[in-house]
Write a protein that binds this DNA or RNA. Sequence first.
DNA 1: GAGGCTAATGACAGCCACTGACAGTTGACA
DNA 2: TGTCAACTGTCAGTGGCTGTCATTAGCCTC
Lengths: 229, 229
Amino acid sequence: MKTGQQIREAAPQHPGTVVPGLRERKKQRTRDALLRAALELFTTKGYERTTVDEIAEAVDVSQRTFFRYFAGKEEAAFAVQDMVESHFLDAVRQRPPHEGPLEALRKAVLESWDNIGDAVEEIIPIELHMRTYRLIESTPALLAVHLRRSEEMEERIAALIADREGVDVDTDPRPRVAVAAFGGVMRVTGRLWGAGEDYSVAAIRELTARYLDQVGPALMENWHGEDRR
Amino acid sequence: MKTGQQIREAAPQHPGTVVPGLRERKKQRTRDALLRAALELFTTKGYERTTVDEIAEAVDVSQRTFFRYFAGKEEAAFAVQDMVESHFLDAVRQRPPHEGPLEALRKAVLESWDNIGDAVEEIIPIELHMRTYRLIESTPALLAVHLRRSEEMEERIAALIADREGVDVDTDPRPRVAVAAFGGVMRVTGRLWGAGEDYSVAAIRELTARYLDQVGPALMENWHGEDRR
DNA sequence: GAGGCTAATGACAGCCACTGACAGTTGACA
DNA sequence: TGTCAACTGTCAGTGGCTGTCATTAGCCTC
């Protein structure tokens, strides 16, 4: 039986880490292999032009197996994004409470851009992740899903912000309005970055900071105390 | 041959209107019938659960014919939205130049809510349009497309705003930032309205106004003259 | 360490959205 | 009225995705 080079080597075990059984490790390897093959194919020949059969074939499993790991092509395309986003949420949660809402969000993003590298690299090469990001921005079907996911994120962030500011997210419009404005800017920068020439992390970091500067002075204020309802 | 009740009666001709040929009228009727049948089915039994075959059957045409009028189920779902959006764009264009960007946008939306009624009613009952709007908000696949379309709209609006304020949309971040913030608020209100109890036009109008009030004071300023780049 | 249990997989059939190709039908117009 | 072009129906095929069932292969117990 051909195992395929996509199946990556087992990483050395850290001491204290519980070694999962063979079954579990095999599953993980299959998933990783499928994910990498999918992203590689997507970014090489285009999302729509890549068939699930091709992905499965590249890893030498049946088409049915692909669907047992991913709900669809879509889910594979966003698997890494999923991880990045949960890191961002953590970063927001760890912001000191004295920072204003937009200040906290701003610092959390910029910090995230500095840290994703390591987390992503454990699964796929970061360069592949960057290519995938641009693919998402330029593929209508994926862009649509990306935006829906962003909206879901914003709802979670709004709840976080409302909580840290001690206001009610359902009666006070400010958390959602602030997050919507913030999210809007993030999307603009993401799009401009994808359309631009410089694909470095530094470039999107700089762009983000510059655009956020335009909202900051206008919206960055402390909500403690007053009620604007 | 069964013509199907979905085919609506020809409207009385306004004087001065050029009467299109029989072929053209027939096409229009088929398209309208397909659209109405589609929306009716979507809102009744759900978007995913209605097949194109069902829509075609309801109008008594072949499935292939449906695809000659609409690129896919999706396009049918957004046909009315298309019209509403172009009306909104017109409203923005007609705002007097002395109004600030956010003031102009705000007035254009509120005015649009007052006027869509007549335009929509020429194609489908308003109540069906309202139901469709809610369907879009609550169907993940449609919501995703809705958001992508919103982004496209925002790009067009940003260009309009930049133009009326006399700034360059590619070097000055403010048009896109302002429109992103505005669009974010619009989406929040749309979602809250869809999730709420009151489905009247008045309700969404009020909600929109209330939420926009929270961005207004913070962002509504006149850009003439200064350069914030 | 043999055998039973069960998760993981493969093979296959089928649904639905969508497309291309070709042939038949019907307005438009000379 | 006959020709042309537009519209339509039919049919075959592709690709995403799901349900089902038999087979394989870790895992665990005695």
